[in-house]
């Protein structure tokens, strides 16, 4: 499952990168930092990314998740730090 989620995240990032013409989003990996400290997304891009990702998960996995909610915001370490942390956070949501 983790692999699948990671793939979805990476595809969404690449598509968003194309749209925003951001080269830094061409080849994301699990270690790619997303938001905050050398992250590839700025504030506005983060908002688009989160909605795109919610849609993609719904489409690919047939499950609807809300990624930007109180629960995500109040995590000690933000799930939006890197592809990895986000993948683990989503996996947790889908399990629960």
């Amino acid at each position: 499952m983790n692999e699948k989620i990671e793939k979805i995240i990476i595809t969404v990032l690449q598509e968003l990168g194309e749209e925003l013409e951001k080269e830094s989003l061409e080849n994301p990996t699990a270690q790619t930092r997303l938001f905050g400290g050398r992250g590839v997304l700025d504030s506005l891009a983060l908002v688009s990314f989160v909605t795109d990702l919610e849609d993609a998960i719904d489409e690919e996995l047939g499950q609807s998740v809300v990624l930007a909610d109180e629960r995500a915001m109040s995590q000690k370490t933000s799930p939006f730090r890197s592809v990895e942390t986000l993948r683990d956070y989503i996996a947790g949501l889908l399990d629960g």
Partner: peptide, 14 residues
């Protein structure tokens, strides 16, 4: 919104 982003970014720890 900015303050929210500030917390999400983890910058207050750095």
């Amino acid at each position: 919104t900015f303050l929210n982003l500030l917390l999400i970014s983890g910058m207050p720890e750095r």
